[in-house]
């Protein structure tokens, strides 16, 4: 067989397990072409499994022995499309949901993903006193999640190497952000969560407050206190910055 015009695509199909005719490859004195190709195939499988495990420590601990099979099935549908292995888990949570996996598995994958994205995300300058609050934004390294299980407690125990608590079904309003060079997760009041998620959606301060009010988490009689508490918490922990 001579070199096919689409040799790059054929190579990718062969390496990622999609099959094809490898007879345009040539072996050497020790391994023939199929055995040489197998080196690349095995390296691809292991590299992607390891990268996924690095990106999802909580999920890896939660699903245990199922991880290699889950990774193989996931990468068969969603091979990496980024130049960095840091993004291999980008589609994992949605894919797990589509497979009918239970909420704690899907939510753990989503939490892992947001935490790992936070490590190398950008950072806005802090909000200065007297600055126009219209420039207020959620830090690019911060994220809000609202899981239906307390997967964050299990994950925290995995990272700390301590005893893992059972995962309970309960609504959780969770903030994820980077403080210094470490990433934190914390349960926050629903009203604070609602305001910050409005900032996360790019609604600006007025839009975020409107959305939080509409969500029912901001009460008219305690509104001022709730808003003040939200900004004090967000500012103290460095979850917000200025886009100006």
């Amino acid at each position: 067989m001579t070199l096919p015009g689409d040799w790059r695509e054929r190579w990718v199909d062969l390496v990622t397990g999609r099959g094809g005719d490898p007879s345009f490859l040539a072996g050497g004195p020790i391994k023939d072409h199929a055995e040489g190709l197998a080196v690349y195939q095995e390296a691809w499988r292991l590299r992607h499994l390891e990268a996924l495990q690095v990106e999802t420590p909580g999920l890896t601990a939660l699903v245990g022995d199922r991880m290699p099979a889950l990774a193989a099935a996931y990468f068969a549908v969603h091979p990496s499309r980024s130049w960095t292995l840091d993004r291999v888990a980008d589609r994992l949570a949605d894919w797990l949901a589509a497979q009918g996996e239970p909420p704690e598995v899907v939510e753990m994958a989503r939490l892992d993903h947001r935490v790992m994205r936070s490590f190398s995300a950008g950072e806005l300058p802090p909000v200065m006193l007297g600055e126009d609050l219209g420039s207020l934004a959620l830090q690019p390294h911060a994220a809000l999640l609202h899981p239906t299980t307390d997967v964050h407690q299990f994950r925290t125990a995995v990272i700390a190497g301590s005893d893992r608590p059972p995962i309970a079904a309960r609504p959780v309003w969770l903030a994820i952000w980077r403080a210094g060079r470490t990433v934190q997760t914390m349960e926050i009041p629903p009203a604070t969560w609602a305001i910050l998620s409005g900032l996360e959606a790019g609604l600006g301060l007025a839009g975020a407050l409107e959305q939080a009010f509409a969500s029912g988490h901001l009460q008219p009689d305690t509104l001022d206190d709730q808003v003040a508490a939200a900004f004090e918490l967000a500012a103290t922990h460095g979850m917000i910055g200025s886009e100006s």
Partner: peptide, 19 residues
């Protein structure tokens, strides 16, 4: 080398045909 095609990245240093 090349590392992928059609938007898919293998994250490996794949050998090039020496043409």
């Amino acid at each position: 080398c090349f590392v992928g095609a059609g938007g898919v990245q293998t994250h490996d240093l794949l050998p090039l045909p020496r043409t």
